[in-house]
Amino acid sequence: MNHWLVKSEPNKYSWERMLQDGETFWDGVRNYQARNNLREMKKGDLVLFYHSNIGKEVVGVTKVVKEFYQDPTTEDPNWVVVNISPVESLKNPVTLEQIKKDDLLKNISLIKQSRLSVMPIKREEFDRILELSNP
């Protein structure tokens, strides 16, 4: 199983909306590296849900429930989506500030490739973020 992090501006698609919807396709990706990451996602992979711009914090865990397929919001065959569904809300959101201060997370893609909206993360990084949410 692989681990991932996806970013969404909460005023466009929030964790609360993810919980209400129960499942969604992850669309709007128009970066080739992020698109390639979507193509690598497998059913059952766990995904951290990060609020970008407003809040700048990891707020929940989702899982991939359907592997990549054509993005239904465009006819351009270059773009794909995956379906994700919520697993759990974090007890305490983990802020970008906390992540930047943590030695175990100093090389996480969220810091190294801050503009990427879909990124792989290591199992240890995923686990550490969950630990930080449960002080």
Rank of each mutant, 00 (worst) to 15 (best):
F49H: 07
F49D: 12
H51P: 02
H51A: 08
H51Q: 07
H51L: 02
S52T: 12
S52I: 12
N53Q: 04
I54Y: 13
I54F: 06
I54N: 11
G55E: 03
K56G: 07
K56M: 09
E57D: 06
E57G: 06
E57M: 12
V58F: 05
V58L: 03
V59R: 14
V59L: 05
V59N: 03
V59T: 14
G60V: 02
G60S: 07
V61Y: 02
T62R: 01
T62C: 11
V64Y: 00
V64W: 01
V65D: 13
V65Y: 03
K66L: 02
K66Q: 10
E67V: 14
E67S: 11
E67M: 08
F68W: 13
F68R: 00
Q70A: 10
T73V: 01
T74I: 00
T74E: 00
T74H: 00
D76R: 01
D76K: 02
N78H: 14
N78V: 01
N78E: 12
W79N: 00
W79Y: 04
V80H: 08
V80D: 00
V81G: 02
V81I: 04
V81N: 05
V82I: 12
N83G: 01
I84C: 01
S85M: 05
V87P: 02
V87D: 05
E88T: 14
E88Q: 13
S89L: 04
S89P: 02
L90A: 09
K91W: 01
K91H: 08
N92D: 14
N92R: 12
N92A: 10
N92T: 01
N92V: 00
P93G: 06
V94G: 13
V94D: 15
V94A: 11
T95V: 07
T95P: 09
T95L: 01
T95G: 03
L96S: 05
L96N: 03
E97N: 06
Q98T: 15
I99A: 09
I99V: 14
I99T: 09
I99F: 03
I99R: 13
K100D: 12
K100S: 15
K101G: 10
K101S: 15
D102Y: 11
D102S: 13
D103L: 10
D103S: 13
D103Q: 14
L104N: 12
L104P: 12
L105A: 04
K106G: 05
K106N: 12
N107Q: 14
N107H: 15
I108F: 11
I108Y: 09
I108R: 04
I108S: 10
S109E: 15
L110Q: 08
L110T: 11
I111Q: 06
I111E: 07
K112M: 11
K112S: 09
K112H: 11
S114Y: 08
S114F: 07
L116A: 13
V118E: 15
V118I: 09
M119T: 14
M119D: 11
P120M: 03
P120F: 04
P120H: 09
I121G: 12
K122S: 10
K122Q: 10
R123Y: 11
R123P: 11
R123W: 08
E124W: 04
E125M: 04
E125I: 11
E125C: 06
E125F: 06
F126C: 10
F126L: 08
F126W: 08
R128W: 14
I129Q: 05
I129M: 08
I129R: 03
I129E: 02
L130H: 09
L130M: 13
L130F: 13
